[in-house]
Computed example of a mutant assay.
Amino acid sequence: MDLSYFWTGWSPIWHTLLIGIVGYLTLVILLRGTGPRTMAKMTPLDFVIAVTIGSAFGRVLTAVDVSLVQALVALVLLVIVQWMLATIRSRSHLMRRLLDSPPVLLYYDGALQRKALRKHRLTEADVHTAARQSGHGSLQDLQAVILHQDGSLGVIAGNSMGDGSSILPFVEQHPGDDSQDR
């Protein structure tokens, strides 16, 4: 049996310690510097970058053939790409359409939006769960339930509707949905 499966010397241990400490501190500083948006509930763009950074950091942490500078460049590159895409997204309607999923109306004014529920693989039970989690005992008290970009369900009570400006564009996209086939 080859003992190198168990021990290859101190060099890889020191390498892992150095990359781990410096890489971790670099990530904390980079993510702190990019603001709270980076760590907010995740849009698909945020999710992809989080997984990629985690994967890259895990790889460079255990790979002896990756230098400290190369590891730091990889982490900085990923954070810069995320920051650039988020900046472009915030300034360009086209980029928002490409990178984001719009909110989806699942329930409105007493009617389930069944086409939207089917399209997003949700059930009536999911809408009821969102109502309960928001402190409502029934859908009767609600004006709308919306599927947000991050996958969470938002609930708007009837008395909180106001002028409806935050959901009216989505109501117009689903006129008369087949909600009558309850």
Rank of each mutant, 00 (worst) to 15 (best):
R89Q: 06
P12D: 03
V81L: 12
W83K: 14
V76K: 06
I21T: 11
S134N: 15
L18N: 06
K41G: 02
P169E: 04
L17Q: 09
D163P: 04
G58M: 11
M95I: 15
Y24C: 11
A111F: 13
A86N: 14
S55D: 07
V48I: 09
D2Y: 01
R97N: 01
H174G: 14
M95Y: 02
H148D: 14
I167G: 09
G137K: 06
F6C: 00
P12I: 03
I53A: 10
V76C: 09
I167L: 10
R118L: 13
G110S: 06
L105Q: 09
W10F: 04
L45D: 01
W10A: 12
L72M: 10
G162L: 12
D177N: 11
F170N: 02
G135N: 09
V155Y: 03
L17F: 13
L122V: 08
L122W: 00
V104C: 03
V51T: 10
S92M: 12
S90Q: 09
E124G: 12
Y5K: 04
H93F: 05
T52M: 14
G33E: 08
Q70E: 14
Q133A: 15
V22S: 08
M39G: 04
D177L: 04
A125V: 08
T16E: 11
D100C: 12
R132L: 07
V81Q: 08
S138H: 08
A56T: 15
S160D: 14
G58F: 05
D46A: 02
R96W: 07
D181Q: 10
R89Y: 00
I88K: 04
S4A: 07
V64S: 07
Q82S: 03
V104E: 01
G176E: 11
A125L: 12
T129S: 10
L31K: 05
I29R: 00
A86M: 13
A111P: 01
A71M: 07
Q113H: 11
L99H: 00
L61H: 03
Q70P: 02
